[in-house]
Design a protein around this nucleic acid. Structure first.
Lengths: 192, 192
DNA sequence: CCAGCATGAGACATCATTGTCTCATCTGGG
DNA sequence: CCCAGATGAGACAATGATGTCTCATGCTGG
């Protein structure tokens, strides 16, 4: 037997499979394991060897989504500059993951009884903290709770991802549309 | 044979079944036909006699959702008063349907190839027209398209429904949270 | 060259949901 | 009272997705 745990030869790259699955399920959330395998260019048997069951695959996608979200949060440097600038960076950084997030969001309701991955709470807390920072600094209004602002951001990102996905909006407008509406609202600013 | 088309005796009320199904599927979008029947207090056979198949049931729910949406649009009198007031009335009127809308929204992706019910376009147009009216009247900013404002409203309503459903928010705050964020945004208003 | 290992293809049983059917029962109107 | 119609309960097959298995193939490392 080889002294290496696994690395030998034409082994499938699990990360590539995962990302292909994410791209497919983002478009068609009911895709079959067979379709996922075909999209990844592997057989259903091999897919099953790496992810033993659809739930395992979804859990792995959840971990991927959480990891990418946290990477986006890190890249956005939420502690630096004004809260508004941080929100803008956050939306821009999270845009590539928005589709996957929307998929996971719709799948989460299937994990009703089971425990919710603690990673989501971590992310919620970091975003809530950003809004709280904006409130304490006098930048954001205080009559909307950080929790609601966080949920609203999620909803707006889902709408933005939908606009882009359906072709009604350009990806380049994603960040601007969301940030402008979330921060500025629909009303005209007399003071501007 | 009776001279009346159908009305005879202990006939099931299809509307009651529909509303029960809506309430159930709002909470558990993957509910079985059996669960739907049980929730409505009828047998699966009878459910099947009224709605021949799950797709027929979902289509009926779609029609119900469209009808209730249009009723809400009518009740909100979108042409009266300022656009802001109309938006506030709209959100308040549509709140009871928000859960059903979220369910239908998630199901619509399953009707990929098939034709989309024209009713949705009608509703989109009416809401878009409201935002356009606000823009033309100088009330709303013009750098966000009415189409985006409409989609954003949907997203915020989904987030609001989620907050209420998950117990993180009170139903009485639904209207206020959404309208304040959609119109005013998160930034503080110096002019207020 | 050869052995080992990952893969592809496919067969197979299982499971859940669904659509369809039959039959017994109950109710209310004529 | 009696019958038509609607319902409830359950059996049944069909379908689709899934999990598991075997076998042949092809490649790599030694």
């Amino acid at each position: 037997m080889s002294h290496l745990g696994y690395a030998c030869l034409m082994a499938v790259d699990p990360d590539h499979v995962l990302r292909t699955a994410a791209a497919l399920l983002t478009r068609k959330s009911t895709a079959t394991m067979d379709e996922v395998a075909k999209a990844a260019g592997i057989s259903r048997a091999t897919l099953h060897r790496h992810f033993a069951g659809r739930d395992v695959l979804v859990r792995a996608l959840e971990s991927l989504g959480i990891a990418e979200c946290e990477a986006a949060l890190d890249a956005a440097r939420l502690e630096e500059g004004t809260a508004s600038e941080a929100v803008r960076r956050l939306v821009g950084a999270i845009e590539p993951v928005a589709g996957l997030l929307a998929f996971l969001y719709s799948e989460n309701q299937l994990f009703e009884g089971e425990e919710l991955n603690a990673g989501w709470t971590l992310i919620d807390d970091r975003i809530s903290a950003l809004f709280r920072r904006g409130q304490l600094g006098g930048e954001f209004r205080i009559d909307l709770t950080p929790a609601w602002l966080t949920e609203a951001l999620y909803g707006l990102m889902a709408s933005g991802a939908w606009m882009v996905h359906s072709g009604k909006g350009a990806p380049k407008d994603f960040q601007h549309m969301i940030v402008e509406l979330l921060l500025g609202g629909a009303l005209r600013r007399e003071e501007s």
